[in-house]
Amino acid sequence: MNGCCGPVDTTAPIAVTINPEARVNVARTATRLGVLAPGDWHPVDVTIVNDGYVTGPLTIESAPVPGVELDLPVHVLTGEPRQDGGFRVRFDAPATVDVTLTFRALAALGGLAQHSTISLLLRSS
């Protein structure tokens, strides 16, 4: 399997990989999020690499965190080896928060231990 275990080549700040056993992994990349202006919705890109031919919904879950709104759409996996995705964040007022995001392919096993969860520091000023 070419590239089964290496980092994903992407400019998105988050990369999701689904391995041949349909397990979901998520990781930060080298791309930084920067400081987000309050009041606006900011897209956060996610690159999805699907080595498991998994189709169906890919959800992004997070517990509510005071001070930030998260727009976490359900993605539909096509089974193609690479898809673009993303979500949006918005601050009402300047704040710094830590959000924990869990990615689940609902038709598959879900995550691989804690590997399908990522924590993200979001800063608005």
Binding site: V54, G56, A107, A108, L109
Partner: peptide, 9 residues
């Protein structure tokens, strides 16, 4: 008798 989506492996 619900036909599944065969969405995984």
């Amino acid at each position: 008798h619900v036909v599944p989506g065969f969405q995984s492996i």
